[in-house]
Design a protein around this nucleic acid. Structure first.
Length: 209
DNA sequence: TCGCGGATGAACT
DNA sequence: GTTCATCCGCGAG
C-alpha cells in the first residue's frame, strides 16, 4: 500500500476506542457509537461490522434490565463504561450491550445492527444464510454472525481482546432517532438511534425514515 | 412490507 | 407459572 490512494477515500486502520473518549452520558454514547466498529477476533480471523443501530437503556427506565437492581444476570451492566453485557433473550438470541456509566450504575447501549465490513463469509457461515443484508440486521442475528454468547459477557470492549470497539476514521453518519423496538414497558421513549438511509437496519421501515 | 404465532431457555414472581 | 431488548416462516395487502 502506497500513499497514492486519495486522502478522502483512505480508511484508517481500526483504532481501539479508549474508555476515556466514550461519552459519559448513555444517550450520548448510543449516538456516538453509530458509525463506529465492532471487531471480533475469531479463530484467527477478524470480523468487522459498522454499528448502524443502537438503543439506550437508562436508570429509572422500566425496560432496562437494571431497573430492579443488580442480579447475577445483569451485573456486567454495572461495570465501568465500555464493558460487554451479553444475555440470552427468548431462549434463542444473544444480545450485545455496552455498559455506559461509572461502576455501580446500571445503564447501557444495545447494539442492534451492523453493516458487515470484513469477514462476511464467516458471518454467513455462522448465520446459515448468504443474504448479506440479513447477516447482522437485528441484535440476535448480529450476535449469531459474530459468535457472541455468554463467554463474552463482561469483556472489556476497550481492549484488543476477542471483541472490541473501534474507530476507522470514517466520516460521521447522519443519526436518526425513534422509539425502541420490541418492548412492552417504556415503549414510548425515544431512545433508538440509527444511521439514516443505511440498508442494514432492523425493524419496520416507518421507524427509520 | 407488515403482522402474526410458535419455538426456546433463563430469570424472576 | 409468567415474562421476555428475537427470529423465522407464512399469509395478506
Amino acid at each position: 500500500m502506497t500513499g497514492s490512494e486519495p486522502r478522502a477515500a483512505r480508511r484508517m486502520r481500526p483504532r481501539a476506542l479508549r474508555r476515556n473518549e466514550l461519552p459519559l452520558d448513555t444517550v450520548a454514547l448510543a449516538r456516538f457509537l453509530i458509525g463506529k466498529l465492532v471487531v471480533r477476533e475469531l479463530e484467527g480471523e477478524r470480523l468487522v461490522g459498522r454499528i448502524v443501530e443502537t438503543e439506550a437503556y437508562l436508570v429509572g427506565d422500566e425496560a432496562c434490565h437494571a431497573f430492579r437492581g443488580m442480579t447475577e444476570r445483569n451485573r456486567s451492566l454495572f461495570r465501568p463504561r465500555g464493558h460487554a453485557y451479553v444475555y440470552l433473550a427468548y431462549g434463542t438470541s444473544w444480545m450485545l450491550n455496552v455498559s455506559s456509566q461509572a461502576e455501580g450504575i446500571g445503564e447501557g447501549v444495545l447494539i442492534r445492527a451492523l453493516e458487515p465490513l470484513a469477514g462476511a463469509d464467516a458471518m454467513a457461515r455462522a448465520r446459515g444464510t448468504e443474504v448479506r443484508r440479513d447477516l447482522a440486521r437485528g441484535p440476535g442475528r448480529l450476535a449469531q454472525a459474530l459468535a457472541i454468547d455468554r463467554a463474552l459477557d463482561g469483556a472489556d470492549l476497550c481492549a484488543k481482546g476477542p471483541i472490541w470497539l473501534a474507530d476507522d476514521g470514517a466520516k460521521p453518519l447522519v443519526v436518526g432517532e425513534s422509539v425502541r423496538i420490541g418492548l412492552t414497558k417504556a415503549a414510548e421513549r425515544v431512545l433508538r438511534f440509527y444511521a439514516r438511509g443505511n440498508p442494514y437496519l432492523s425493524g419496520p421501515k416507518r421507524l427509520s425514515p
